[in-house]
Amino acid sequence: MASFSIDQQPIEFEPGQTILQAAMAAGVYIPHLCFHPQFSAHGSCRVCMVRIDGRTASACTAPAAAGLEVENLSDDLQALRRDILQMLFVEGNHLCPSCEQSGACHLQSVAEFCELLMADLPFQYPRRMVDASHPDWVLDFTRCIHCELCVKASREVDGKSVFSLTGRGFDTRLVINAPDGLLVNSEFASTDRAASVCPVGVFLPKHQGFKTPIGQRKYDRHSIEQITEE
């Protein structure tokens, strides 16, 4: 089987796999955020940036090829990842102690893994309407990182088209396909894959606030590099 290396460790790969897919199959952790193994790569968050033969590229979109030398957890790449994560943290309301997703949040866990201690860019504290129209779900759009996972899950798995991104750049927003834009009047159902795929705390089930005690949450039990996406 053909192989390449990540931080000098040999990684075997199947033809057609990306560097991130091959790394995951080999149990080697490359920090990533907008990628989910169930869906096609988005390549937008740049957290999975690695250096391939001297050039930086996102591991979720770069095809694996024999003999590549890939740098993953070097100090300067981790510093770049911290810069990216910092931008995500200041653009949304990621106030972990107030968020029910804390402890099960992919963004939080990746940032902890990358040892982001402090964001020193100006915090935006965006004000956006919370959608609490649905009897069982509440959506807090101020935490959305625009990874499109719920958009893809709704289209590709649920066979609906409940979510979409609108606007460009800093004005990008997650919107709901309903006559009045409210979740309750969309085709959304609680069992939708779109509801469970969010890597941050946009989708929160009602009636069970802070149900899992601290110490037993997803990333309390295992660190992020030991967990495969659910």
Partner: peptide
Amino acid sequence: ALNGGIPAL
């Protein structure tokens, strides 16, 4: 202190 935390709500 580092991101406003609960008071920043």
